[in-house]
Every structure is written in C-alpha cells, then in structure tokens.
C-alpha cells in the first residue's frame, strides 16, 4: 500500500490551500481551459508571452488538492522559461505521471518531484495532468474548445 503521506505531502497541501499565481491575467497572449468530466474539475490557464519567453502564467478554477497544487506548482516552474524549455518540461512532467521513462529525457523536474506520488494512484493522474494539458494547448495558440482529460 502506498503511503497517503507520500501523496499528500506538505508542499502539495500548502499549494492547495494557498495556490500561487491564482487568478486571471491581463493582457494575455493565450488562454486554454482544461476540464475533467469525471470529477468536474476545471482549470483555466492564462499565458502571456514575451517573444518566445513565458513572461506571465496564471490559472483559476476549482479542483481537488492534486489538480490545484499541480497547477500552482506548474505556474511557478514554467514562468520565465523559453518556449522549447517549457515544452520540454511539460513532456517530462507528463512522462513522470504516466511512468513513461523515455519521455523524461531532458528537463529537470526539481520541485515538481513532490507530485511523483500521484503515479501510484492511477485514477488521480488525470487530476495532476489537467493544468499541464491546458498549458500545452495555450502554448499552441489557445483553444476555443476546452481540452478534456477524456
């Protein structure tokens, strides 16, 4: 049995209770929404680019501890990155969640490693990846349709 305290680490609970970079961003280069129809979790990601650099990144929405903390940690980790680095970090994070070692080559996950406990709870992986899928859609220019986890 996995230890729940590996899943709900203090950093995750902290980001759940006090999410960073929470709220709308103005002006904005692109937005994208993520929606998990299974549980109703919704996240909207606001992205502002300065050339090829992620200058601003915020999110808002309602979700569980895992999805909220993952979105919050994501905004901290991705802000300031160049587009290729940001894309590599997304790929690495999604690889960490799916346990796909091949995709992990590249970006150092750093603080995001606190979410690695999620991969032992397969039904919760979609919670952790929701904001990341939305960010990927925003980087691709935004999307009028919400990305879903299904």
């Amino acid at each position: 049995m996995s230890d729940l305290r590996d899943l709900y680490q203090q950093v995750i609970l902290d980001h759940y209770r006090a999410p960073r970079n929470f709220g709308a961003l103005e002006p904005v280069s692109a937005c994208a929404e993520g929606y998990n129809p299974l549980c109703g979790d919704q996240v909207k990601v606001y992205l502002r680019m300065d050339g090829d650099r992620v200058e601003g990144l915020t999110f808002e929405g309602v979700g569980c501890a895992i999805s909220t903390a993952s979105a919050s940690l994501m905004t901290e980790a991705v802000r300031g990155l160049e587009r290729p680095q940001a894309e590599a970090l997304i790929a690495s994070f999604l690889a960490l969640m799916t346990g796909d070692g091949n995709g992990a080559a590249g970006a150092d996950l750093g603080k995001l490693e606190v979410l690695s406990g999620v991969k032992d709870y397969p039904v919760r992986i979609k919670c952790a990846t929701l904001a990341w899928h939305a960010l990927r859609a925003a980087l691709e220019g935004g999307d009028s349709e919400a990305v879903t986890t299904e």
Binding site: M1, S2, L4, L7, Y8, R17, L38, C39, G40, D41, G63, C64, A65, I66, T68, Y121, V123, R124, C127
Partner: peptide, 27 residues
C-alpha cells in the same frame, strides 16, 4: 471543509472504504 471530495475518496479508499465522489451525474 478544506478537502475536495476527490481527495476524500482517495483517503477513504486507502482505508478500504468505497464511496463516490463527484457530481453524481446531477450537475
């Protein structure tokens, strides 16, 4: 208070307790 139903469901499941968390198809 302070705990999303989805997290409650995971913590209960770890204790062998099966409940439903979500919108119950009644949005």
């Amino acid at each position: 208070d302070g705990a999303h139903p989805h997290d409650v469901a995971t913590i209960l499941d770890e204790q062998g307790i099966a409940i439903r968390a979500g919108h119950h198809c009644a949005q």
